[in-house]
Design a protein around this nucleic acid. Structure first.
Length: 498
RNA sequence: GCCCCCAUGGUCUAGUGGUUAGGACACAGCCCUUUCAAGGCUAUAACAGGAGUUCGAGUCUCCUUGGGGGCACCA
């Protein structure tokens, strides 16, 4: 619910792997909420765990956001009034706040060794008991624990979870959730190396950074009550919470494994943002697609640009149930967004895909073929598939394809010769000039348009599937068209009838 | 084992007590058509199961089942 305060939301990923669709959606919703109410969107890096840190992950995150068009107002690279925006640079802040919790009795120092904890865990497993800390250090007087700490005894800090009663928290998607406090663990807030854990660091940062709405994954639902308890222990005001459902694999059965995610690539799909550009997807399409996984607008609108989404997004319409990833719908949206691109924009975007295929292009031709390619492309890398012949000096048609269905090579060659005659005698070489006499020739020949134009298509484009023939011919140009027909005639003449 | 969340066609979803259960993707067919598309039209297809509340339940309650998540000195 909008409050009187300006909306401030944060995207707080940890740099421990590739940015995927789930995090992109969370960031998108954050961004939309901030933009529509005129608030701020903050990027905060949660990198307190050095063991899991992956170099480059932070850059990939920022590149991914940038590619998607999701811009943030405050972050590690651009700064802001509430920095630093990397948790690894905020250690002292957490220490200060943890001490407050200890002194107010909401947290305590725990000297239990990992070995003892492991034995406890095993015992609880054996007895089929809930896996929780047993409270051994819960009642050590503060003076004593301070003394032991000063003496250098290894320790962590744990939250003193109430043992009686229950805790109710409110999620924007699910309403009130109540849990018995006895099912909550005395979670560790600070590790023995002095670094704060997520539970503490994120709550402190959200408060200090004046975050009003926390949008995060539903994997945080089980620890949600703990987080609320920590905030309440500080006496702070709680933000609004929205826990987004997870993404399931396309079958809808379970989350995608690392292995499955990797296998996707050979089908031209990926759940990693970094791969999507290379696969020929438009950021506009990706944004549109993920926006609709767990959110809806109304009955008849599904095509959205980022500005549309800013205008229409609403937390109220978020859906709590898990959604299966549907890549064919991404393909659909990609086609739609490709068709909504201006011609010069399209020309610019397909250029690298020709280059990747080793096809030399020129901007003028690129612009001319764009309208021809536009309505038949699903992904940007379809462009060289349909249009490489525009840029080649010669094409290499498959002789079999040159022979029209139901005709002999000789008959096909004859049709090609008649086409050559007409084409070479034309005053102009645009599609409007080419089409009428060619149709008349087909009419007179007694063959079908499909047969005759099929021969020419293969002869001129080197492929059975291509953009419209006459427009293509006009762009290829008379000289090359005639050369290619000539070459095709030679091939046909050298074939034996079957 | 314990805790939490979820449940409408194959998939994404609309629906907040009374609807012929709506839309989108995919699929099939038709139209258009020189190929492939795009576009238009049509069809197939869903309230997980069981109790209860109510005159009336997809919608509220409970149970079952199924799915998902969590139970780290990760986030």
């Amino acid at each position: 619910m909008p409050s009187n305060n300006p909306v401030r939301v944060r995207f707080a990923p940890s740099p421990t792997g590739h940015m995927h669709l789930g995090s992109a959606r969370t960031a998108l919703y954050d961004y939309l909420l901030a933009r529509q109410i005129g608030g701020q969107f903050i990027l905060r890096i949660e990198d307190t765990d050095k063991k899991r840190y992956i170099p480059g992950a932070e850059d990939e995150l920022m590149a991914g956001l940038h590619w998607l068009g999701i811009n943030y107002d405050e972050g590690p690279d651009i700064g802001g009034p509430y920095g630093p925006y990397r948790q690894s640079e905020r250690k002292e802040i957490y220490q200060e706040y943890v001490r407050r919790l200890v002194e107010s009795g909401h947290a305590y120092y725990c000297f239990c060794t990992p070995e003892r904890l492991e034995r406890l865990h095993q015992e609880q497993m054996k007895q089929k008991l809930p896996l929780q800390y047993d409270g051994t250090c819960r009642n050590i007087p503060l003076e004593e624990s301070d003394r032991r700490r000063a003496a250098g005894e290894p320790h962590v800090v744990r939250f003193r979870t109430p043992k009686d009663g229950s805790t109710t928290v409110r999620d924007l998607l699910r309403g009130d959730i109540t849990v018995e406090n006895r099912s909550l663990d005395d979670a560790i807030l600070v590790k023995s190396d002095g670094w704060a854990l997520y539970h503490l660091a994120a709550m402190v940062d959200d408060h200090l950074m004046k975050i009003t709405h926390v949008i995060r994954g539903s994997e945080w639902l089980p620890t949600f009550p703990l987080h609320a308890l920590i905030i309440r222990a500080f006496g702070w005001e709680e933000p609004e919470w929205a826990h987004l459902s997870v993404f399931l694999k396309p079958s809808g059965k379970g989350k995608m494994s690392k292995r499955e995610a990797g296998d996707l690539l050979k089908d031209g799909y990926s759940i990693f943002i970094k791969d999507l550009e290379d696969l020929g997807y438009l950021p506009e399409a990706v944004v549109n697609w993920i926006s609709l996984m767990g959110w809806s607008y109304d009955d008849h609108t599904e095509f959205f640009t980022l500005p549309d989404l800013v205008e229409k997004f609403s937390l109220r319409k978020l859906n709590p149930s898990p959604a299966a990833i549907n890549f064919t719908k991404l393909d659909y949206f990609n086609g739609m967004h490709i068709r909504s691109l201006s011609l010069d924009d399209l020309a610019r975007r397909i250029k690298p895909f020709f280059r990747k295929e080793g096809v030399q292009t020129d901007d003028e031709t690129l612009l001319k073929i764009s309208p021809l390619l536009q309505e038949r492309m699903v992904t940007l890398d379809d462009a060289p598939y349909f249009g490489r012949f525009f840029f080649q000096d010669t094409v290499q048609p498959d002789p079999e394809d040159l022979v029209a269905k139901g005709l002999t090579p000789q008959e096909s060659a004859e049709l090609a010769r008649r086409s050559y005659e007409i084409l070479s005698g034309l005053s102009d070489f645009d599609s409007e000039t080419i089409e009428p006499p060619m149709r008349a020739m087909v009419e007179a020949s007694g063959y079908s348009a499909g047969q005759v134009f099929g021969i020419l298509r293969v002869a001129i484009t080197g492929q059975k599937v291509s953009p419209p023939l006459f427009e293509s011919m006009a762009i290829v140009g008379r000289q090359k068209v005639l050369e290619r027909i000539q070459a095709a005639i030679r091939i046909l003449e050298n074939m034996n009838s079957v």
